[in-house]
């Protein structure tokens, strides 16, 4: 099971720029590395990351083999309304993980 750490401010003033940070555990096996018998390890990476604010997409990233293990994303958005910020990672071999955080906008 993938573990994820997310950091979303619990409270913000309307119109504030808030910083969102996410970190997820994943090997991000490139597909270019041989194992100790010389055989290439099959590619196993996260390919997509999507962040939605009350269902509306605010950030999306496509990931490639050069991205390190345990991908870390940080980005900003404008706090417009109270609600839920949800995160979804998906990738090779049917990998899928979701997380969400509540935010109160005053």
């Amino acid at each position: 099971m993938a573990r994820a750490l997310i950091n979303v401010p619990a409270k913000a003033k309307r119109g504030d720029i808030i910083e969102i940070k996410t970190l997820i555990s994943h090997e991000m096996e490139t597909g270019f590395r041989p194992d100790n018998t010389g055989k290439l390890l099959p590619r196993d990476i996260i390919t997509d990351f999507v962040c939605k604010y009350n269902g509306q997409e605010i950030f999306r990233a496509e990931l490639y083999p050069a991205i390190s293990a345990n991908p870390f994303f940080t980005f900003t958005t404008v706090a417009t309304e109270s609600g839920t910020i949800s995160f979804e990672w998906s990738g090779d071999n049917g990998f899928s993980a979701t997380e969400s955080a509540k935010i109160t906008v005053e």
């Binding site: 573990r3 750490l5 997310i6 950091n7 940070k21 970190l23 555990s25 345990n70 940080t74």
Partner: peptide, 14 residues
């Protein structure tokens, strides 16, 4: 100080 940006904390959760 930011635990959510530290990959070591993923290990702590494991």
């Amino acid at each position: 100080d930011d635990d959510t940006a530290n990959p070591g904390m993923l290990s702590v959760l494991d």
